[in-house]
Design a protein around this nucleic acid. Structure first.
Lengths: 255, 255
DNA sequence: CCATTTGTTCGCATTATGTGAACGTCCGTC
DNA sequence: GACGGACGTTCACATAATGCGAACAAATGG
């Protein structure tokens, strides 16, 4: 269960994947455009592009390279190994309705949280909205803190080493000490709380979701604007609602 | 608009991607298992695995490597560049209902057809069923023939060179000459017909779907068991219903 | 029609990769 | 508790595969 770090790593593959990512993010790129983005000679970039095309990860059309639809299918295969959208949505909508706030379920992976589904729409739908995000840090999210509070401190350290504690809002915790204090509180409380540390005005509570084998699969969270969600409501309502939802989600994962 | 072929191609990246694919297909593999599948020394394989993990395409858990959920998200980003599931489903369900047969929409890419959505459920849902497929050849599918009949013969040749004309059923056309004859007929008729060439007992009609810029995006097809779908029904009913659906799908893509 | 940008080809130097053997580590078994 | 086997990891070396740049070709546009 040890998530070891890096042994030898291949530069070529790394570059290829980087190019793939760039093309995906920019929704299609030409060789000339890529030439300005990565610092390899055009000829090298072309080799990478050829390889990615040949392997059907890219499609070339009119000199512009796009990520292939096949990648979308591969992605769906991956998703089919995870909980069904339906079962998650049921729990999320229930939680959102009871509380009147937005609920999210995220997957814990490589020290980050990746949006699985949220009641305000899922990643696939709102993808291209301005600052819509589908990837979050642990240190400034409610579910993230909850997860960190359950992990071995060594592992927490490694995650912080990897990602740092970037400030995303005025209130973001950026000092290790403070974070560890907060994690202790979180562990006592049984769920994580984020008070404008992720975004101004946003308050939320979150908890870890475990798979059948007991490992942390991801996190569940609910929250809304600060004027609706105050300390009292958190302690008396949201916290309990959240933990109920955790139970029902985890039990639905076991079945 | 020339889809040129291979210049230089990178062995390292190719191997990495191959390993990624293997892990995806087998739903998780260990180093030892991979050692038996690819013919590189363990140490090399490990380098690839390290790289893929580092780049967050794989997740290592208990010695077993899995494709990361992040890949699922990347896939969704790709899908968001394509027509919305909704608009396609509407047309497909309409077509399926009018005809009482199954309808599919596939994406044309790299000389193959990839399932976008079908009325019997989509790829994500039925993924792990025994011989459920999401990738088809052009030469033995109705939509595939329709697409081939629209393409430049040179390009048809290149596609055949790449994929061959594998026999998937008794009736599959495996000779170039015969295929080109069939394509001529297809062009005249305005849609493709497949008569047990894909699977025994399956008869279907199909046509190409074009994007706004006029290029072939994919194919639409309807069909069912031979005892329900005979020549008369094709000529008098299915063909027309299909072409109507093509119109409405293409117009919905333009908007 | 020339100037400019973008894409492709080629040969060479060198580095990054492939390789296998040796070493650790974790199991279960005797 | 010690042994054997299976699996994972590390290392140093040889070389082949990649990175590189310059020269060439093909578009694009003024």
């Amino acid at each position: 269960m040890i998530e070891r770090s890096d042994g030898r790593t291949l530069k070529t593959t790394r570059t290829s994947l980087r190019i793939l990512t760039l093309i995906l993010e920019h929704d299609g790129l030409t060789l000339a455009q890529l030439d300005g983005m990565v610092e390899s000679p055009k000829s090298s970039i072309l080799s990478h592009l050829n390889t990615l095309c040949d392997s059907r990860y890219l499609v070339k059309s009119d000199g512009t390279y796009h990520v292939s639809f096949r990648v979308a299918l591969l992605g769906e295969t991956v998703r089919s190994r995870y909980p069904s959208r339906e079962s998650v949505r049921t729990v999320l909508e229930d939680l959102a309705e009871r509380t009147g706030e937005e609920a999210n379920f995220t997957i814990f992976e490589h020290g980050r949280l990746l949006l699985f589904h949220g009641t305000s729409g899922n990643a696939a739908t709102e993808e291209d909205e301005a600052d819509y995000r589908s990837e979050y840090y642990l240190h400034n999210t409610a579910a993230g803190k909850a997860i960190l509070s359950e992990l071995d401190p060594k592992r927490v350290e490694r995650i912080i080493d990897k990602w740092g504690l970037p400030r995303e809002s005025e209130a973001t915790i950026t000092a290790r000490e403070r974070l560890f204090d907060e994690l202790a509180e979180t562990a006592d409380r049984g769920y994580g709380v984020v008070d404008e540390e992720f975004a101004p005005g946003l308050v939320a509570v979150g908890a870890a979701i475990h798979s059948a084998d007991g490992t942390v699969l991801g996190g569940l969270s609910v929250g809304g604007p600060k004027y609706r969600v105050d300390r009292t409501r958190i302690d008396h309502e949201l916290g309990e609602q959240l933990l109920d939802a955790v139970q029902s989600l985890e039990s639905s994962l076991r079945s």
